[in-house]
Simulated scan of single mutants.
Amino acid sequence: MDQITLYRAPTAAADADAIADWLGAHVDAEVAVRERFLSRYADDDLPEEMASVRVLDPYERETGNTMLGIVRYEERAVESPERAGGVIYDGLELQRLFHRRIPDAERSLAHLHVVLLDRVVGTWGDHDGRWHKRVNVLGQPAIVSVPGLYEAPAKPDQYYEAQQRHALLTGDSPPREVLENEVEGDFLVENDPRTTEALKGYVLQAYHYLATGEAFCDEEQCRLHNPHRHPGVVEAQLRDPDFCPRHAERYRR
């Protein structure tokens, strides 16, 4: 692989330049940063295509709602990304519609595109019949969801225990901000100052997959590990060592 292009997520707490600098120090490829993917490659068809890959129900495989109001929402969200939120998109279908917009001359696997995205993406689980939020979707282009970093991994057990206690006392679900302030533990929250550091490993996973065909590492203390719980994310991305012994040989420079 000769080149990696990273696209900014301007409304998210992710410093694309810092991620690119770190990545460039660990891989043998030229790393460049471009503006937001959805701004660079927006066209008249994009809002309706985005609407067509919306997840409608966490337990229904079928996606998409292209009613006029939904398409108008997507138009506004493309133009003003700070207005987007509360929607999950089929990550694999979103990847396909992004891929069609990459210029033909840049689609080679020698040039990886990594889209830092300010939207939540998911993949369907045939094993349990529901959608699962994801931090990244590997491939060309790779998608790294910034809100997915906060929402996809499960929180510590204490978080859900506090949620249940609050519901028993009040009959209502507590605001997320209340739980984040009450519960001690290793988990990341929206606009967490550790966001950029944590995302470095997820971007490297995109490179590693295209370069080697290996999706993730089984070792919990490795940037290439893909844990399903927040304490595991903290362990893999925010604590030493950066890599397991096997991957340290490839990426520690």
Rank of each mutant, 00 (worst) to 15 (best):
Q3H: 09
T5H: 01
T5E: 08
L6F: 03
L6G: 04
A9I: 00
A16K: 05
A18H: 08
A25Y: 00
H26V: 13
E35N: 11
L38G: 03
A42I: 03
A42M: 01
E49L: 13
E49C: 04
A51Y: 07
R54I: 15
L56S: 12
D57L: 07
E60H: 13
R61T: 09
N65C: 12
G69H: 10
I70E: 09
R72S: 07
E74M: 13
S80L: 14
P81W: 05
A84G: 10
Y89H: 12
Y89K: 04
D90E: 07
L97A: 04
D104S: 11
L116V: 00
L117V: 15
D118Q: 07
R119V: 02
V121Y: 05
T123S: 12
W124H: 00
R130Y: 07
R134G: 01
L138Q: 05
L138H: 07
Q140C: 00
Q140R: 15
P141Y: 05
V144I: 08
A152V: 10
A154K: 14
K155N: 12
P156I: 11
Y159H: 15
A167T: 11
L168N: 15
S173P: 11
P174Y: 06
R176E: 10
R176A: 14
E182T: 06
E184R: 12
E184P: 05
V189E: 05
P193Y: 05
Y202N: 10
V203S: 03
Q205R: 09
Q205G: 03
H208L: 00
H208F: 04
T212K: 08
C222Y: 02
L224V: 00
N226H: 10
R229S: 09
G232N: 02
A236I: 02
A236L: 15
A236Q: 02
L238S: 02
D242K: 12
C244W: 04
R246S: 01
R252V: 08
